[in-house]
Amino acid sequence: MWYDESNDFVDLFVSARPASSKNEIVGVYDDTLKVKVKAPAVEGAANKELAKFLSKLFKVPKGEIRFVSGETSKRKRLRLPKSEKLMQFIEDMTA
């Protein structure tokens, strides 16, 4: 499963692809959400870009997105507060 839901937050299992031509969600592959980000994987730039992109996409404060694991790996676990946009996205992706 590419996400884990609890009462107040959702953990997303993300496969990040840095240095892409644009920020976009590609889809769900091998139980991870594949996300392309423009920033290179240098000095945390891709992680910052990923958090910023997800923050705007799901309408959650960027400061409330936490890297639970995988900060230096392509496969990451991010914890986001629940939002209407995020829950709708999960519903759409699992339908």
Rank of each mutant, 00 (worst) to 15 (best):
W2I: 04
D4W: 07
E5Y: 03
S6T: 08
D8L: 15
D8C: 14
F9T: 03
L12M: 03
F13Q: 01
F13T: 09
A16E: 14
P18K: 13
P18I: 13
A19N: 13
A19I: 07
E24H: 01
I25G: 01
I25Q: 01
V26W: 06
V26R: 05
G27R: 12
V28Q: 09
V28S: 08
Y29T: 09
Y29A: 12
T32K: 02
T32R: 01
T32I: 02
A39M: 08
V42R: 03
G44T: 03
A45R: 13
A45G: 06
N47P: 10
E49Y: 06
E49C: 08
E49V: 02
A51H: 12
F53D: 10
F53L: 06
L54W: 01
S55E: 00
K56E: 13
L57C: 11
F58P: 05
F58Y: 04
K59M: 13
K62L: 13
G63E: 15
G63V: 14
G63I: 09
I65C: 00
G70Q: 06
G70I: 02
T72E: 14
K74S: 12
R75Q: 14
R75S: 14
R75M: 11
K76P: 10
R77H: 09
R77W: 07
L78P: 05
L80R: 00
L80F: 10
L80V: 03
L80H: 08
P81A: 11
P81E: 04
P81G: 07
K85A: 09
L86M: 07
L86H: 04
F89A: 03
F89L: 01
F89Y: 05
I90C: 07
E91K: 15
E91I: 11
D92G: 07
A95K: 10
A95E: 12
